[in-house]
Structures are given as C-alpha cells and as structure tokens.
C-alpha cells in the first residue's frame, strides 16, 4: 500500500516514510526518532534538520493524548463536503509530540473540552484508504 492511500484524499504519493501507512494497516501509529540526537518526530520525518542526519528509526505512539484545541467546520474543501460538519483537533501525545487529526464521529461534541484525554487510533476508510482519528477514552 503506497502513501497515496493515506487520509480521505491523498496529495502525496511518494515519500521515504511510506512505511507509516503499512504500520497503520497493522494498527500502529508510528513516529520517527533520530538515532543521532534522539529527537522524536510526528508527523514522521526521514531526515533530522538538527544534525542533518537521515539515520532515523520508527517508534510506536501509545495513542494516549490530551486535547489542545479543536474546531467543527461547516465548509470544506473539494472532496470533503459529504462529511460536513466534521471536527479537527490538535492534541499532545504523552510522548511529547503533537498530532493534528479529525475527531471520530462517535465523539460527543457537547462533551468536548480542551484538556480532555483522547485516544489516537487508526481508522479504515472506504476504497482501501486508511487514516487515524481521535476517539473517546
């Protein structure tokens, strides 16, 4: 499975971190870690700008995270109109990295508040596409 199957609509087909999608298929959300300086990256990066190293390794994220901010959108770019309204959020993972992700439809909008605990999980989409989303803990 190539990277172009990531997300509802994919714009990037080739990347050195395409293994991310293969891990996602297996239920794992992975970050990359620079072997030289130890810095953890999410979204995963093939290259570390701090020491110009490309010696990176995969590290799984637990999925435990806290809500930093969010919004529910009523207008969408091409290809997302059918999903409206939907919510997007920024969360902080327990490993320290931040993740930008949509809310799962089963999250109760009325109970959402900044600082709440959420769980980041892979999500299979129609047409053999795959993504990740935020679920209630």
């Amino acid at each position: 499975m190539s990277f172009s199957s990531f997300g509802k609509i994919g714009y990037v087909s080739e990347t050195k971190v395409e293994d991310f999608v293969r891990f996602l298929e297996k239920g794992k959300i992975m970050a990359t870690k620079c072997r030289r300086c130890g810095k953890l990256y999410f979204p995963p990066r093939a290259d570390c700008p701090d020491d110009l190293s490309s010696d990176v390794t995969w590290q799984e994220l637990s999925g435990h995270c806290k809500l930093l901010t969010f919004t529910t959108v009523y207008f969408a770019p091409t290809g997302f109109q059918d999903d409206l309204p939907y919510s997007l959020a920024l969360v902080q993972c327990e490993e320290g990295v931040k993740v930008f992700a949509p809310f799962s439809k089963d999250v109760d909008e009325g109970k959402v508040h900044i600082g709440m605990n959420l769980r980041l999980a892979p999500k299979k989409l129609p047409n053999r596409r795959i993504t990740y989303e935020l679920k209630q803990t």
Binding site: G7, K8, I9, T15, V73, F80, L88, F100, P102
Partner: peptide
C-alpha cells in the same frame, strides 16, 4: 502530506 488529507 499530513494535514490536507483531513480536509482542513
């Protein structure tokens, strides 16, 4: 690569 695929 990492944010547009969610419709932002």
């Amino acid at each position: 690569q990492w944010e547009s695929p969610f419709g932002t």
